[in-house]
């Protein structure tokens, strides 16, 4: 497996969808290649960073309208 092939299998590896043979070749390459080891770490770091990004929400008035609707709804359904 070359490095160029390795980088295209990173997601399948993390998702657990490689065949046993592919997985073995992937891990074998990982053992001997510091560059791909770094690359895989960076993909993991990227996933962590994405997971920590604060969500965008609705703007203030739309949000407030929903909260008002919720109050009405719970008053009505109580």
């Amino acid at each position: 497996m070359t490095c160029e092939e390795f980088v295209e299998l990173v997601t399948a590896y993390l998702e657990g969808t490689l065949t046993p043979a592919q997985r073995a070749a992937f891990e074998e390459h990982l053992e001997v290649c510091p560059g791909c080891d770094t690359y895989l770490d960076q993909i993991r770091a990227t996933i962590d960073v994405l997971g920590a990004v604060p969500p965008e929400s609705l703007h203030g008035t739309a949000r407030q309208r929903l909260l008002d609707a919720f109050s009405d709804w719970s008053a009505g359904s109580a």
């Binding site: 929400s57 609705l58 949000r63 909260l67 919720f70």
Partner: peptide
């Protein structure tokens, strides 16, 4: 009628 629970959902998922 837990408004905070609803607000958290709206803020968390609307994006």
């Amino acid at each position: 009628g837990d408004e905070q629970a609803f607000a958290d959902l709206v803020d968390g998922w609307s994006g």
